[in-house]
Each structure stands twice: as structure tokens, then as C-alpha cells.
Design a protein around this nucleic acid. Sequence first.
DNA 1: TATACCGCTATACTTTGGGAAACTACTATT
DNA 2: AATAGTAGTTTCCCAAAGTATAGCGGTATA
Lengths: 130, 130
Amino acid sequence: MQDTLIKIEHGTEQCSRMLLPTKDALDVLSGKWKLQILIALMFGKKRFSQIQAEVIGITPKMLSKELKQLEINELAVRHVYDTAPVSVEYEMTVHGKTLEPLLRALTEWGIVHRKRVIASSKKQKKNSLL
Amino acid sequence: MQDTLIKIEHGTEQCSRMLLPTKDALDVLSGKWKLQILIALMFGKKRFSQIQAEVIGITPKMLSKELKQLEINELAVRHVYDTAPVSVEYEMTVHGKTLEPLLRALTEWGIVHRKRVIASSKKQKKNSLL
DNA sequence: TATACCGCTATACTTTGGGAAACTACTATT
DNA sequence: AATAGTAGTTTCCCAAAGTATAGCGGTATA
């Protein structure tokens, strides 16, 4: 019993040590678009229209808003070039690049998960035949 | 010029190869609570009320809803024990455990990010004195 | 002159996420 | 009969997220 209490205490302490930084991270990264935009920027500077083309489904309004947020949190920078017509490029900051391992881990997991979803939908089909 | 085009093509192809699985992952993981709940479950089976105590700020409604989603996506399982009063435990599935590296990466980044935010808010204070 | 591209912004709307508080069903204890 | 614990559900509500569509100011091209 004493043992159990100690285990629980230990468990919840470890747990809250993980939960607090996670919340900080989620504050900045959560939402449908930010991580996708950051992935697009992992492969180099890009223009507004190019990001919009790659992040499928995003509207200009959302892209504009999300880019501003990324700038505020110093994950991306905006460069304006005085060309004609004016060209704007967005780039990952050094801080943004520290997200790369996370972004890759997310993608890796997405691949695993997708396989699983496909497999389990096959199983469902099988079962529905019974 | 030819070079540039090839680079761009290559870049966007790589990019969309990452973006598609990422979307799949985000469909299942996005939102304020799911990742936090999963972290709580990393440290072993837990009861509803225990999760609620650890994931600070979550309401029973949200917890209930999110746990259902996690069950549907086979990231967590619900066990009901026929005790009195009835006790229910939630546990990570094998598939859920494949998220552990990602959860740890997220926490790690959260720590890095928090340090940065604190540092830059100090800088702001400095600047505001000028 | 007209059309089209770029990088947005404006407006108006719908949908979803999330919070507060009360309530339920069941059981055990007093 | 009253109270309390467990695991939620229900209701009402608001704010943020997201969609759809249109337009703007500049430039370049036909």
C-alpha cells in the first residue's frame, strides 16, 4: 500500500513534468495548419502562393493568419523583396529548425497510423461479410 | 534555370510526401487535449478522475469526448471493472505506445521553446527600458 | 486598354472546440 | 432516509477556427 502510493506519486510527478512543457509547445503549434506550413518551409524559402499550393486546402486568409503567428513566435521570418511585382518569401528561423526532428517524427507516425487505418478498414470489410 | 526548376520540383515532391501522412496524423491528434491525455496514459493505466486531476483544466465533458475519440482511433482502451462503485480504467494500446517517441520529442521541444520565450521576454523588458 | 499575376485584406458566414454548471445512475455506507 | 463516491451526460453558451467569395494596389504582358 505504501508502495502503491509511492508509485502513484512518482508517476504523477513524472507526468506533470512532461505535461507542462507539452502545454507550452501546444500553445504555439496546435491547430490544423501550423505544422503543415512548417513542413513546407523545411524544404527552403517559399513564396506565399507556393505555400498555398503545397498546403492543400488552406485559404489565403488562414495562411496569412498562421504565418503571422509563426512570425510572432519566431518560427518563421518574412522577407520582402523590392521587385516588380513585389515578391515575399517566408523562411524558417533557427528556432523553427529545432522543430525538424518533431516534424519528422510526426510524419513517421502518420505513415504508421495510415497503414493501420487501412488494415483495420480491410478487417471491417471482412467482418461485414460474415 | 533548368537546375532551379528541378530543385523546386524535387522540393515540392519531398514536401507533399511529408504533408500527406502529417495530415493523417493531425486528424487524430490535433486539439488541445489528446496529446496531454496520451502523456498521462504513458505512465500506466488510469481512472477517469485521475486523468482529470493530472490534465489540468480539462472538464469531464471534454475528457469524456476525447477519450471516446482515442478509443475510436485505437490509441486507448477502456476497461470497466464490475466493482462497487464501478471503476473504469483507461490504458494505452500497443498502437498508442508507438506515439511515445513523438510525445517525448514534443516535450523536449516544449522545454527548449519555453527557455526561448523566457529569454526573449527578458530581452523585451530590456528594450522597453530604452 | 484590358487582362492577368502576386500578395494579400475585407466581409460575411458556418462549424467546431471548449467552458460552466447542473444533473444522472448506480452503489455503498451511515 | 441521507450522504457520498464514481463516471460520466446534458444543457446552454461563447469564442476561435475555418470557409467562401470578392476585391485591392501594384506591375507586367498582350
